[in-house]
């Protein structure tokens, strides 16, 4: 599934990212790489969401969330 379909409160693991290189690098610098766990804090329509990665919250837009493949992790 893609991240934009995620549910509030659930934890996911990044499987794959298909983003422009520049964006992908920035996400990597922030600690978002393959296998990283993401907790979804809040969502809005259109896939804009607040996520928690390695202890920090980020707001990301739909253009990012719909291009990240994730799988759910059973907490």
């Amino acid at each position: 599934m893609t991240l934009n379909c995620a549910e509030i409160g659930a934890v996911y693991k990044i499987e794959q990212m298909e983003l422009p290189q520049k964006t992908e690098r920035r996400l990597e610098a922030l600690g978002m790489t393959h296998g990283t766990r993401i907790q979804v804090i809040n969502t809005k329509d259109r896939g804009t969401m607040i996520i928690k990665v390695r202890g920090t919250r980020f707001a990301i837009g739909r253009d990012i969330s719909e291009n990240i493949q994730v799988s759910e992790v059973n907490a």
């Binding site: 964006t23 920035r26 804009t48 920090t56 919250r57 980020f58 707001a59 837009g61 253009d63 990012i64």
Partner: peptide, 10 residues
């Protein structure tokens, strides 16, 4: 063109 929102929420 893609507009990418990516911002830290302290």
């Amino acid at each position: 063109y893609q507009r990418m929102l990516l911002i830290e929420l302290p």
